[in-house]
Nucleic acid binder design. Structure first.
Length: 443
RNA sequence: GCGACCGUAGCUCAGCUGGUUAGAGCGCCGGUUUGUGGUACCGGAGGUCGGGGGUUCGAACCCCCUCGGUCGCCCCA
């Protein structure tokens, strides 16, 4: 490690190779699915005035006070790198007149920033996909969002081992009554709770419910349930969400301890969870945030949404390799370099991927090309000029032992023909490992 | 903010209870098989053993500090 070279910032990542392919696969799949559900793409600023986040999240929370990347710009204004998408989208909804499109379905993805200690699946710059429905008070919006998330996970091929945990926080009144009951309940046994939970009792009592400490679990099982505090309307809302999921065939389990710390969350809260990512098990999470718009100074507007970490989804997807190279072109002589480059271009213009080897020791170019595991290798050497032939080799797949398909070979032959560099093509195809095409090169 | 573990060539790692010029595989560069061909063989370049201090006749190995990484706690919008 040279001390001269600046190091990457802690918690940032340089994503490359199969990991980057997995990342791209997640984004591509999200884009495809989001279009199926007619969510409109939006691009949002990476930073906002700090107030956008501090007012939506609450000034005093840990989140705002120590986990945001905030700084002053040259005009002395406090700005913050976005720690989430929702607040910025809500701000745009108010300031850009998006009310006229309500109910508005939007989707985006990109980097987010949180100042926290990195660990598995948690980074300081991380990336999320995000979907929101703004201006829809109906439970059908919640259902549609969840069904879309379910389809996304299935199309990513990672639905096995991922379960949808679902809860309701009720409306504002039910939520407050439940919270009061929880405080009363835990205060009575305060001395027996873990130190962390004694602290949480004052700051964030709902969080005691998902404490990992065995001392707390003794009490959490018997703690008051939200169901006992739900208004008729809130019960009805939740029933419509669960009914919609059942009708759509989306499996879910009730998670009474699933809570949200922030006050603007109402009704539905959900997380898709796996046990395959260590301590960071939530793969996709969201809920209904009917109280947010008012917190930002806008008109009361119901809304619901979710977000998912691309890195975590990519980890579940596993390493992905780019599509196999269609055609490798090996130029083994100076005189064939230009021909090799021309061939490469022509193949790409016809939609076939190609790569040209014309550098380094001529004798090793073939070996290097073959290591890329191409479907087909074209070899150009002095013979290609003097005897007017090009050797074309089909390469056996290293993993499956299969030969490339005839269709690709045909497309390459057509490409060679279309170049009109040759007259009277006489391809001879031998069955077996190699095939050789003989072309007469025009003088 | 707290804790545990880790830090040796570009990459993955070995290096026994501290003992002579620090090793392997892969990768890279060059060469051999005078060859129509993938896996073989030979050679080469490349390391202030994260950094600093200490103990010792002697430290990659022990101690302290520091920087960095990994995982977990807190937090999780």
């Amino acid at each position: 490690m040279s001390t001269q070279t600046p190091q990457a910032i802690r918690g940032t990542q340089d994503i490359f190779g199969p990991d980057a392919e997995a990342f791209a696969f997640v984004v591509e799949t999200f884009e495809r699915v989001r279009k199926l559900y007619r969510f409109r793409r939006v691009e949002m600023p990476v930073f906002e005035k700090t107030a956008v986040f501090s007012r939506s999240l609450g000034e005093t929370t840990d989140v705002v006070s120590k986990e945001m990347y905030s700084f002053e710009d040259r005009g002395g204004e406090s700005l913050t790198l976005r720690p989430e998408f929702t607040a910025g989208i809500a701000r745009a909804f108010i300031t850009d007149g998006w009310q006229q499109y309500a109910p508005l379905k939007v989707a985006t993805h990109g980097p987010l920033f949180r100042y926290e200690r990195p660990q598995k699946g948690r980074y300081r710059q991380f990336h999320q996909i995000d979907a929101e429905v703004i201006g829809a008070a109906e439970p059908q919006a919640d259902v549609e969002l969840l069904v879309m998330a379910d389809q996304l996970l299935k199309e990513l091929g990672i639905a096995d081992g991922v379960t949808l945990q679902l809860n309701t926080l009720g409306d504002g009144a039910s939520r407050e009554a439940w919270r009061t009951a929880l405080i009363d309940y835990f205060r009575a046994v305060k001395g027996d709770l873990s130190e962390d939970s004694q602290d949480r009792l004052e700051r964030n009592p709902l969080r005691i419910l998902d404490s990992k400490d065995p001392r707390d679990k003794v009490f959490t099982a018997q703690a008051p349930k939200i169901d006992d505090f739900l208004s008729d309307e809130a019960q009805d809302f939740f029933a419509k969400v669960t009914g919609g999921l059942n009708a759509a065939g989306v499996a879910w389990t009730r998670a009474p301890a699933l809570v949200r710390g922030l006050d603007y969350y109402r009704h539905t809260a959900f997380e898709f969870v796996t046990d395959r990512l260590g301590a960071q098990g939530t793969v996709l999470g969201g809920g209904r945030y009917d109280g947010l718009m008012e917190a930002l100074g806008g008109a009361a507007t119901p809304a619901v949404g979710w977000a998912a970490g691309i890195e975590r989804l990519a980890m579940l997807v596993g390493e992905r390799n780019p599509r196999r190279l269609n055609v490798a072109i090996v130029s083994e002589a100076r005189s064939t370099d230009q021909l090799a480059w021309n061939l490469g271009l022509s193949l790409r213009r016809r939609g076939l991927s190609s790569a040209v080897w014309a550098e380094g020791a001529p004798r090793k170019r073939f070996d290097k090309a073959v290591k890329e595991n191409p479907q087909l290798v074209l070899v150009l050497d002095d013979k290609a000029v003097s005897e007017r032939t090009i050797a074309v080799m089909r390469v056996r797949s290293l993993t499956t032992g299969n030969l490339v398909d005839e269709e690709l070979a045909q497309r390459v032959i057509e490409t060679l023909d279309s170049l009109k560099l040759w007259a009277a093509p006489k391809p001879t195809i031998e069955h077996g490992r190699e095939l050789e095409l003989e072309y007469d090169i025009l003088a």
